[in-house]
Amino acid sequence: MAEYQLPETLRYTREDEWLRPAEDGSAVVGITDYAQQQLGDVVFVELPEPGAVLQQGEACGAIESVKTVAELFAPVSGEVARCNQELAQRPEAVNEDCYGGGWILAMVPSQPAELDGLLDAAAYAQHIADRE
């Protein structure tokens, strides 16, 4: 099995996204190291509109590489607070620094209980291993 960075401090989804609660009550969302390796060179990120209200699991964007496209799903319910507009110019940030400069959007969760249902790093690592 290949090596993936999976920071302990993040929460994960089975759709290969991560979520990091921020101090202001919002939560930053991106895709995992596993996801960016699977996709290969990211060439375009389709972002939702800030202000959009999403249900958990709702499709809200897409990450495209040259030959494939992965849908982006809302990891929890809530409103989109802001998006990483830099990705329009530098989509490669998702490959270079998927947990930092390659973040995708921030949302304000409306159902905090949903956060508890997300995976921790160990559970997500197991999820990847099961798939491979």
Partner: peptide, 9 residues
């Protein structure tokens, strides 16, 4: 920009 097309999407 083939991700717009039927063979991928």
């Amino acid at each position: 920009l083939a991700t717009r097309e039927q063979h991928i999407r």
